[in-house]
Structures are given as C-alpha cells and as structure tokens.
Design a protein around this nucleic acid. Structure first.
Lengths: 157, 157
DNA sequence: ATCACTATTGCAACTTGGTTGCAATTTTGA
DNA sequence: TCAAAATTGCAACCAAGTTGCAATAGTGAT
C-alpha cells in the first residue's frame, strides 16, 4: 500500500502536535480524518478491527492523547455517548444533528460568530470557553423509511 | 412531617402522568422538583441516601419512567454524563452552562422561539424534535477562586 | 375481610465501557 | 551496542447500568 495524500496529512498532524508517529496512532487518526461524521470509541474500534488489531486500552489512550493535544474534540450526543471529530481549522466547531431513530450523528454548518455570541449571552459572571449545539429528531432516511410504521415521537426530552 | 405545598405538587404531578404514587416515586420526584439544577442519577441517589434507602435499580426504573411520561427531560453534559431536570411549563427547554473546573451544571434563560428556529435552520431533509445548547467554561466561583492557580484553559474541545 | 390479580420494589447476578498496574516491546539517542 | 524513555498489550479490576425473578404492596371484586 503506497502513501496517499491523506497519509501525509496524518503524519504532518502528528508532527505538529509534537507526538511520535506510531502505526497505531496513524491508524486511529486516519479513521477520524476520513470520517465525515463524529465517531464514538466503539465505532473507531469497529473500523480498526477490519484492518489492524489494536488493543482496547491503546485506543482509549490514543484518543485521549489526541484530545489533550487538541487534534480532536469531543461531541456529546444525547443519551450520554461521546463522539470524536477532527478539530482542524477547516472543521471548526459547529452544531450536530442526531437521529433519534437510527442514532446517526452528523455535522451541520457552523454558526456565525455573532450568532454564537448571542447564544452565550453577555453575562460576566462566567467565562465561556465552548458552545455546543445539539439538534435531534428524525433524519431524512428514517423520516421516509418509517413513515407508516412509527408514530411521531412523543418522547421529546 | 406534615404535607408541604411541594408535596401536594408532587402528588398532583404523578396523578396527571397517570402513574401510581409510591413513596419511592414521591421521594425521587421531590428531589428533582426541589433542585435548582439538573441532577445525575448518582446525585439523586446521594440525596436519597440521606433520607430513605431506595434500591439502585428502583431509582433507575423510576427515572426512566418519569422520562418516558414526560415529567422530566434529560440533559447531556460534556464528557458523556446525563442529568435530569423537571420538564414543566414553568421550566421550558433552555441552554445549560457547565463549569469545566468544578463540574457544576446550571440552567440559563430560555431561547426565544425565533432564535431557536434560526438555529435549527430551514432545511427540510430532517425533522427537528429538540434543540440542546450546552455552554461550558468557568463558573463565577472557579473564575475567582482559581485566578492565580490555573492558567486559562487550553483544552477547548 | 378475603382472595386473586397486577404493579412495584428489592436482590443478586450479569454485561458493558472504561481504567489501572505492570510487563513486554519498541524507539531514541549517546 | 547499550541504556533510558516512550509506547503498547495483557489481565485484572471498577463502576454504571441492566436483567430475571422472587418478595411485597396495592387494588378491586365478591
């Protein structure tokens, strides 16, 4: 297998973060990089298992290292599950949508700065570091696939 | 101990939801009702232990019943922990703030409807059921208490 | 009041996701 | 080439949450 552009990008990312480029880290980063939606650790491990066989503990350690180095950020979905996505400048903080039916989590377009400011309010009794917006409902697929089988969600928590 | 206004409210809430008023359910609901911030199951259990001694499983079952009946709603805090709060009309959906230092989770003022609409966007390829906004940073207490001990957060994931 | 039926609770055992300690391996660099 | 440091893998552990089932409490009819 030859080196792709994506591989080069991965190596550069690790170099910039100042951490060693081990095969395990490359593999995990590649998966995150290539995904167009945030991934849970479980999903990352699933994808890994098809290729390499990296120990569970190692995956947890790599992900938390990436997070600590600011390479990735976490997104908490409803129900308490945590997902991860790249934290590059091309992929700035943005709202997410999750489907209550199939669980799929996807990225929406980023907010404007002024919009985000409005949300955070102008209070001065706390310091805002991060704003996370999570929209949930039914995705396009489930909306059509289950039109007749499922009543509208009553559970709007 | 005599019946307070709060006790009457609790009994009425259970009656309206169409579920039996057992001592355990009353105790859990009272804790949620009296709290001015969302509580995790762990926190609910802590508060319960000081008074009654309700089995872990029972607490889980009561909370999920309340949620299913729409008496409470859940709030997912960063890091994947789930909190619960009353879902009454006096306490509509609203943004939350959580402190990255002490972990305290508090409620902010509700969004206006038009504001929420803007957030959800006007796309028609998914159905929006719920919008959750989570703001994090440093709370007033931690902001002042730790002014000199802690550098500004680098970890803005 | 009694009996039978249903709902609720408690208990123990189990599953799952995540963590810890430590030994084995790899990497680095003198 | 060798020693020190970083990284990985393994096994054991921990805590949160779930399941099956027996015990208990409520409820309603007679």
């Amino acid at each position: 297998m030859k080196k792709t552009v994506s591989d080069l990008k991965i190596m550069e990312t690790l170099r910039l973060a100042g951490i060693a480029r081990t095969p395990q880290r490359m593999a995990v980063l590649k998966i995150l990089q290539d995904s167009n939606q945030p991934l849970s650790i479980g999903l990352i491990r699933e994808k890994l298992e098809t290729q390499t066989n990296i120990n569970k503990v190692t995956v947890y350690r790599i992900v938390s290292l990436f997070k600590q180095k600011g390479i990735i950020r976490d997104v908490s979905a409803s129900g308490g599950s945590v997902y991860f996505e790249m934290a590059t400048s091309e992929h700035p903080v943005h709202p997410h949508f999750s489907c209550n039916q199939c669980g799929m989590l996807s990225c929406l377009t980023p907010l404007t700065f002024s919009h985000a400011l409005q949300l955070a309010g102008s209070r001065d009794d706390y310091r805002v570091d991060h704003i996370e917006i999570h929209i949930s409902g039914l995705c396009n697929g489930c909306l059509h696939a289950t039109r007749l089988q499922n009543p509208p969600l009553k559970d709007r928590s």
